[in-house]
Design a binder for these strands. Structure first.
Lengths: 192, 192
DNA sequence: CGATTCTTTGAAAACAGTCAATCTGTGTGG
DNA sequence: CCACACAGATTGACTGTTTTCAAAGAATCG
């Protein structure tokens, strides 16, 4: 529901009734069944998407048909393909629902408009972007520095919620290893 | 020189003489000799840093003493530790000069002030942040999807300048492999 | 030059990937 | 409610890639 999004906003910035009433119609709620695409490779992404329910993933598919998970998103997270959004070019990635989900979509033009009208919104979004960048720097650091086992330990530590919710094969993909390797890493770790 | 920075700004946004005159004293020029630290692990990073000359790297050191390069920066690039900047916590990373270099430092408070006074500046910075995020998403994708050889090919394609300028061992580190592996990958590729 | 650092090469070991079979749990239709 | 089918996870044996360790060969700098 869009209420989830408004609630999220009100927790972070103060908005008048008039403002929330103005924002609300700029939002579209999209329900997705498990495995349904939100974005498919080749499409142009023109939204900012807020996950109000469920769990999604962004992934790329290589020439061998293997999927590589770039990111996960659950309730109160944002998801999308910023590359396609910025460039206007077709996306190289796919986004689909891991569970039955709901996302609040705001078209880029409307999103920018909200930012122009409400400086606090703009600042909030900027803060999210900065944090996202830090998170992705840390993921790069983990990807180039850690062994398979360390990557998994770090993942569980960082995202205990996902470790439950997301199929192991997708976690393996997220960490850049095969499902078999992750399975072995886990049984190793369990022995301790 | 700070002029390099002003020139960079004027290429991207329009500023009056008064504005550049106002910005200028908020900038500090720091000269770095090869191998000199700009930021050392444990320090708190409070700047935005613009590289006006030379080449630097950000890297972390693991428990075995191995260095892992998070990023490079050359002329007209920005560098810093956003995690430390945002959190105010000591940095986990080091930044040092790969060549004799010059960076323009702007303290966080002054940087924010410029953004407040000059909306175009704020938008420029936001655009850079967005692009940086896209670049780091792509790097994650490469790190989890590609083989050693593909990682190197992709790197050369993406940053032909660095491939010349930066020692191979640092490129290897940046790509998450040992210098020996990179050396072998290169001699393989050369055979084609 | 001589010394230091970086790169290359080789051989062995460790690690992760592949392929195939089995096991487990879930959900569906009879 | 059971039986079956299906997807996901595990395990084993094998292959291939990357790392490690060690040494030799370039390149660079004072």
């Amino acid at each position: 529901m869009v209420d989830v999004f408004i609630h999220y906003l009100l927790q972070r910035i103060s908005l008048s009734e008039a403002e929330t009433a103005w924002i609300r119609p700029l939002c579209t709620l999209k329900k997705l069944r498990k495995k349904q695409y939100l974005l498919q490779e080749g499409d142009v992404w023109i939204y900012n998407a807020f996950v109000s329910k469920g769990c999604l993933r962004t992934y790329g598919v290589d020439d061998k048909g293997l999927e590589h998970v770039i990111s996960f998103a659950v309730e109160n997270w944002w998801i999308g393909d910023r590359e396609s959004l910025l460039s206007g070019q077709p996306s190289r990635f796919n986004i689909d629902a891991i569970e039955d989900s709901e996302v609040v979509l705001i078209r880029k033009d409307n999103f920018d408009l909200i930012g122009q009208q409400i400086p606090a919104f703009r600042e909030m979004v900027n803060g999210i972007l900065q944090k996202s960048f830090v998170v992705s720097q840390n993921r790069i650091h983990a990807a180039i520095s850690y062994s398979a086992e360390e990557k998994y330990q770090n993942f569980v530590h960082q995202y205990p919620a996902f470790a439950q919710r997301v199929p192991q094969s997708m976690i393996a993909s997220f960490l850049g290893m095969t499902p078999e390797t992750l399975s072995r890493v886990r049984s190793q770790s369990a022995k301790k």
